[in-house]
């Protein structure tokens, strides 16, 4: 594979690696807090994937349209602005993500209160007892 081709897509490999790290933590780690961190890493990997699809190289700027006062007309070209659609979807996903993170932490805290542990293994032992 040519060097230029690697450079064009290495970002996706890093997102996939982040996603793998998150998935691994969710399965292999025994601690509930670690599983939740893994879940959040998984989530950011997907968010960053979406956002990078909207990125444009070569002079495109942030998606706030330059406009003059008193109705000065500008010709707006889509190529000059990065794609705003992934931003919208992911912005709400981040805030919903923190709200669901709160729910996950609340469930983990109730489990701790009831079984006195955050470790999957000990919780399962105490459920069986």
């Amino acid at each position: 594979m040519a060097m230029a081709e690697i450079f064009a897509k290495y970002n996706y490999w890093i997102y996939i690696t982040l996603m793998m790290i998150g998935l691994y933590a969710m399965i292999a780690k025994g601690n509930l807090a670690k599983k939740i961190i893994g879940m959040s890493i998984f989530q950011t990997a997907i968010i960053v994937f979406y956002v990078s699809i909207g990125a444009k190289k070569g002079g495109a700027t942030i998606p706030i349209i330059a406009h003059g006062h008193e109705g000065a007309e500008h010709v707006v070209r889509a190529i000059d602005y990065v794609n705003p659609l992934p931003h919208v979807l992911m912005l709400t996903a981040i805030v919903v993500g923190v709200a669901t993170l709160g729910v996950a932490l609340a469930i983990a805290m109730s489990i701790y209160e009831r079984y006195g542990s955050m470790e999957e293994e000990e919780i399962l032992e105490r459920i069986r007892e």
């Binding site: 996939i16 996603m19 399965i27 780690k29 190289k57």
Partner: peptide
């Protein structure tokens, strides 16, 4: 189990990444 699941899914995605647009392609 964790590593196997992560590698399996990551491998599929890596294979698919050849079809993704290049980063920052307008």
């Amino acid at each position: 189990i964790g590593a196997a699941a992560a590698l399996a899914i990551g491998g599929v995605l890596l294979a698919a990444s050849a079809d993704f647009p290049t980063w920052g392609d307008p």
